[in-house]
């Protein structure tokens, strides 16, 4: 039981990273491989606020998310806008390039020596029914669920959400209906990067803060997103949670070295049976 609960908490971290990925993909159809590194940079920025300036956690979080928003817009305007209508492969290569650039930049500025990063809440774990769980872990779970629900409702029921879904399906028709598509894309990059930043700040206490902190998390977040269908926000969270649990079970019962192998085996099986992912729905019906 403890293993499953711990797995769920890891799963939440993957889910948080996956939410931002899915948000950007769902709106702009770009699979952003640099997402994890952008989250890492945001986390470093929050660390600067925390340590160099000595701001409280919450203030640093807000400032870091502000940075993430601007950072997301910067990436969109300087890099992604130019390749918005380019083939997917070009976009992938570009985001992989950004991955390496951001990783290197962080390495130059802050070095590769891992340092510890504070949790949002301190305190000893509680014991609930034989399972140990800390206040911070409860916070991570609740935060993940709130963000998932919030963005799910945004997409489903608001005017902006409708515009985001429309823009991802047909940019030309969206323009003709009066939607400012580049504005919608800006929003997706800003919000998606901020979401990634939250994920980074939740990850750093576990993995320690270093330029490479997000690489494994991002791979598993991608896996979770794919498992959930890549366009569904609840799917991303559910996929992240499944992967967290499986990973933890494999580490405990088989071998920690094999966990990624088994996770990908699971994805292979799921995608073999349901190519559109668990929550993917019918992406197949395109224009007649």
């Amino acid at each position: 039981m403890q293993i499953i609960v711990s797995g769920l908490i890891f799963g939440c971290i993957y889910a948080l990273a996956a939410l931002g990925l899915v948000l950007i993909f769902k709106t702009t159809e770009v699979a952003n491989f640099a997402h994890g590194e952008m989250a890492m940079l945001t986390t470093f920025v929050s660390y600067v606020f925390l340590t160099s300036y000595g701001f409280p956690y919450l203030v640093s979080l807000v400032l870091a998310l502000l940075f993430a928003t601007i950072f997301g817009l910067f990436v969109y305007f300087v890099f992604m806008k130019r390749v918005q209508s380019a083939p997917h492969l070009n976009q992938v290569v570009l985001t992989l390039g950004l991955f390496m650039v951001f990783n290197g930049v962080a390495g130059i500025i802050w070095g590769y020596q891992p340092s510890s990063f504070p949790e949002a809440f301190h305190g000893d774990p509680y014991e609930i029914g034989g399972v140990f769980i800390s206040l911070n872990e409860i916070f991570v779970v609740i935060l993940t669920l709130i963000l998932m629900l919030g963005f799910f409702l945004l997409f489903r029921f608001t005017r902006l959400g409708l515009a985001m879904r429309a823009a991802s399906q047909d940019t030309m028709a969206s323009e003709l209906m009066g939607i400012k598509v580049s504005g919608v894309f800006m929003g997706a990059w800003a919000i998606g990067t901020a979401l990634g930043g939250i994920g980074g700040m939740m990850t750093a206490p576990v993995t320690f803060l270093s330029p490479n902190m997000m690489s494994e998390v991002l791979i598993l977040a991608f896996a979770g997103a794919v498992l959930g269908g890549f366009i569904s926000l609840p799917g991303a969270v559910f996929g992240g949670l499944i992967i967290g649990v499986i990973e933890n079970l494999i580490s405990y019962y088989i071998a920690p070295e094999l966990k990624i192998v088994f996770v990908f085996l699971l994805i292979l099986i799921v995608l073999y049976i349901r190519p559109q992912g668990i929550f993917g729905g019918a992406k197949i019906i395109k224009k007649v």
Binding site: L162, A163, R165, Q169, L176, I179, K287
Partner: peptide, 25 residues
Amino acid sequence: IHCPENRRVFPLLTVEENLMIGAYN
């Protein structure tokens, strides 16, 4: 308002959502 060639409806949105997009502004 320009109703484009080949219809260009949003295939994954419902009929109602498509119509509401028309009233976006």
